[in-house]
Every structure is written in structure tokens, then in C-alpha cells.
Amino acid sequence: MKRTISFLILLLVGSLTSQAQSFGKLVKKTPGMVSYTLRESFSKDVPGTLDKVKAWGITDIEFSSLFGKTAPELRALLDERGLTCSSYGVSYDAIANKPDSILRNAKALGVKYVRIGSIPHKTAATLEMMQQAAEVFNRFGKQAHDQGIMFCYHNHGFEFQPYENGTLFDYLVAKTNPDHVGYEMDVTWTYLPGQDPAALLLKYPKRFRLIHLKDVEKGVAKSDKGSMANEQSVVLGTGQIDWPAVLKAVNKSSIAHLYIEDESKAAEQQVPQSLKYLKSL
């Protein structure tokens, strides 16, 4: 009997140790951050905000705005602090009509990725909308690829309308060149429309290159609108998202950069807590 109990204890300890080792590998380095997280601070004081980000231990930033600076000026401020901008967020109109200007800025910033945040829409997603977007993505993606940059599309929720045996997002992935067009998953804008972020990452392990780590307050209803009240963006691990499942899927994907995105006005207090949570995994 004693031997049986001892054996069971060893099995339990071994299992817990194995789980701890597994979870310990979920976050391999400190994630980056989306500039939108500190949008108000950046709009007032770019150098001071960069110092704040560095003090958190974050060295990688995805900029969705130049905040009144030229691309070379912003690059110089980053270089002075040992920070990098790995992804540059621009508009759909910009990649469709100003590709040369966008790519000049991207080269000046030293980014590896250019992404857009959504496809302009006033209605629910349609097949025609996705067909037009695929043409724009493939054209700009080729231009970016020729300059050593990968174009990525950031899902915003409305793309998950049913279509044939899947969704219009599936259609968009199928109709874009995998060598020239990648994707950036926004975890919340995947989860709220009723999708499983981890399952989608595993479905397209080679297509997602970037990811926004954003949690949503418990009790917030499912929606494909791609918006929520600022205060509903909460500390990672305190909301509805199953982060261990998502991060396990990330590690089986082609995602190169993870960015914390906190839309709350309390982001300066919440980001350090989110970092602490990720490190605890």
C-alpha cells in the first residue's frame, strides 16, 4: 500500500513538473507593445514615453502612427534607447494609393513588417469586399516583398461572416499569396466574433506572423463589431481569453512578434501587470 501511494505521489509530482516546464516555455521573451496602448502619452511626449516603455523591459514596438515625427526622427529616438520598431501600421488607403511613400517610411524605421488594421466598411463583410481587398493585398504585398518587407493584415472581427464551409476570413487567406501576404491576429477581435483563436492559429500555422495580445473583461457579450469600451480591455489573464491555449498555438505557428495591446485608459498601470502574468506562465 505504501509503495502504491509513493508511486502515485511520484506520478503526480512528475506530471506537475512536466506541466510547469511546458508552461515555462510559453513566453520565450518579453513581448513587444503596440503604440496605440500609450497613444495619449506618445501624442504629448515621444521621447518620454519611449523611456517609460524601456523601463518596463519592453524593447520592441509596433507603431501605428509617427506621432508628429518623421520616420528618420522616430528611428533616431529608438536607436538612442536600444529600442526597435518591428512593425509599422498604416491604413488601407495608404497601401492602395501611396505604396512608395509607405515603403520609404518602413525602410527608414527599419521594420520587417507593414500591416493595416482593417478593411474600410460600413456594412457587414461581403464577398466583393474581400475580393477587392485580396487584389490590393497581393499587389502591395509583392511591392513590399521586393524590398524585404512582409505585409500583414490585422483582423478586426467583421471578417468572420459565414461563407461556404468557413468564413470570409478563410476566403481572404485562400486568395492571398502566402509568400507576400501574412496575417496579424488580434486575439480579442478573433474571440468576440465567436472564433477560437488557438484553433485558428493551428489552422493557419504558416500565415500568421504577428499577434496582438489583448484581453476582454468577463461578461462582455460576443460581437463582430471590432470595438468595445476602453475599460473592457483588461489585464491579461483576468478576462475571457484562454492564454495558455493561445500561447501554445503561437509556439506552433510562424508568429515572430507578440505585441501587448491594452486599449484601457489605465494601460500604464495594466501593462506591467500583464507582463507579470505572462512571465508567470
Rank of each mutant, 00 (worst) to 15 (best):
E164W: 11
K142T: 11
P162E: 13
F140C: 04
A133K: 05
G148C: 09
M150H: 08
I149N: 00
N165Y: 14
N165C: 12
H154Q: 12
H154F: 03
G157A: 12
Y153L: 06
A134Q: 08
E164L: 15
H154P: 05
Q147F: 11
Q147A: 11
H145V: 09
D146E: 14
F160S: 04
E135T: 13
G166P: 08
G157Q: 00
F140V: 07
T167A: 01
G157W: 01
H145Q: 13
N138R: 07
N165S: 15
G157C: 07
A144F: 08
F158S: 05
H145Y: 13
F151G: 02
Q147R: 10
G141V: 05
N138Q: 09
G141D: 03
T167F: 00
H156T: 06
Q161S: 13
G148Y: 06
Q143F: 06
N165F: 13
G166A: 06
R139D: 11
A134T: 08
H156C: 02
A133L: 08
G141P: 06
Y153S: 11
G157N: 00
F151W: 10
Q161D: 12
F140E: 05
R139M: 13
F160V: 14
A134Y: 09
C152K: 03
H154K: 09
A133D: 07
C152P: 02
F160P: 04
G141K: 01
Y163N: 08
C152T: 12
F137H: 05
M150G: 02
R139T: 14
I149F: 07
E135Q: 13
A144K: 06
N138T: 08
P162D: 14
A144V: 15
E159G: 00
T167Y: 03
M150E: 07
E135M: 11
E135W: 06
A133Y: 05
